[in-house]
Design a binder for these strands. Structure first.
Lengths: 234, 234
DNA sequence: GCGCACAATATTGTATACAATGTGTTTGGG
DNA sequence: CCCAAACACATTGTATACAATATTGTGCGC
């Protein structure tokens, strides 16, 4: 496992959980990956106490699963969870986008456009993981603009889980071109057109949701089992 | 501080956080109360390690605030947070109630009616705290019936925070008679009337939200300060 | 050679010891 | 008598030692 920000000697629980969270979000850590405590405490130069705090924090966000006496693993959301996450986002985000459109200041617009620019740059640089991370941040930014910190926190968690869901269930056929939808959203927000912003966000989320593969995929830990059971060629 | 379930010797982090959570929900622990680690580890007969895990869990749910080098305190949501929490609930719960109405089985109805009965019993017994706790569980139960575990988890957190908000900002004039609204909701759900369930939940939440005191209350910890500054009489 | 039981190892769970920080008290000076 | 600085105390933060559990490896019997 290779992680950035692995400075030795001066990391606290937040920096570790943030680093892991970002790594997961950018698909540098795949679902099912074991996150050993000793391993992480070596990497970050802190005791297991701190590492455990960080892992518990990630577990609360449901992007890490802690199995008793087995350790921490990057979560593998089930297909049911995947649908639930997007359904929750569809309840929260459209109305929040409406509010954001009514509250947005010129500075906010600049910030959002900056996001898009970076997103585009990452995409052109071939760094799909970073583009995905940035597109998630875009959604959180909208909740912040709506002056709804509580909803922003909830969306933050849902987006982290969405990243795992995309890693597991994304259909390769459908291209992940979020920047177009985001661009349209910025325009609606800039025009203070709440209704349009709400509609755009709604359809954007429906698009994402419908681009998921409907068939249940085998979990990484289950891969071995299913392969040994003979269906390796499928 | 006096807490139930204080068995010595066999508690894990979950039992402690659940006990504290319930105590907070039932208003046996007031906002601002200091939750000392040694104190809790004595009460539950475990080391501070376990207590800290429990407190961190509650902090993630935002019903406990951990101040670095100062300790853990029962959270004191600001008025802005209070509004945000109810706005989030208004986005999530009505639509979820609709789904529940369409999914509910006869067993579910029985379970909900059971809830109401207990709620009523607690109210008659003068145990307002327990009635409040049960009424919260009622809302979570609806999300469960809607087959939306993710949303149920979110609502669970929001309701815990709502309990703190009620403790801080409730107007005494307005009676807290939720069982009527809940009764009407059960009827709509029993009739599989999704639209009506959604409407009822919406108005129920608006009622709760509008029953908050609009003026910011002084935080408990600030009481001392403001008294020492001379405005003791206000 | 195969399967099961047992032992060795590695990893996590818990408790405790020590360090760091904040709080309250006491004492000295004005 | 009041204020301030320094000290003592209490509490939290972190690291480490030990215990419990799961996993892996080995050897014995069949």
């Amino acid at each position: 496992m290779k992680l950035i920000n692995a400075k030795s000697g001066s990391a606290n629980a937040n920096t570790i959980s943030d680093a892991l969270s970002q790594a997961i979000h950018e698909h540098r850590l795949a679902p099912g990956t074991k996150l050993g405590e000793d391993e992480l405490s070596d990497i970050y130069g802190v005791s297991r106490t701190i590492v455990r705090t960080a892992l518990q924090s990630l577990a609360h966000h449901q992007i890490v699963e802690i199995k008793r006496n087995r350790g921490a693993f990057v979560a593998q959301p089930s297909l049911a969870e995947a649908h639930e996450v997007f359904e929750a986002r569809e309840l929260l985000e459209p109305r929040t986008a409406r509010t954001a459109a009514l509250h947005a200041t010129p500075d906010d617009i600049v910030l959002l456009q900056d996001h898009i620019t970076q997103e585009h740059a990452a995409m052109n640089a071939g760094d799909r993981g970073r583009a995905l991370y940035l597109s998630g941040r875009f959604h959180i930014e909208i909740a912040r603009i709506a002056n709804q910190q509580t909803i922003a926190d909830i969306i933050n968690v849902l987006i982290a889980r969405s990243s795992l869901i995309i890693a597991l269930y994304w259909r390769r056929e459908s291209a992940l071109c979020e920047s177009q939808a985001h661009h349209a959203l910025i325009k609606a927000i800039n025009d203070n057109d709440g209704t349009r912003a709400e509609e755009l966000m709604q359809s954007h989320l429906v698009d994402l949701h419908s681009a998921l593969n409907l068939s249940e995929l085998p979990a990484v830990e289950q891969d071995l089992k299913s392969m040994l059971l003979g269906d390796s060629g499928r």
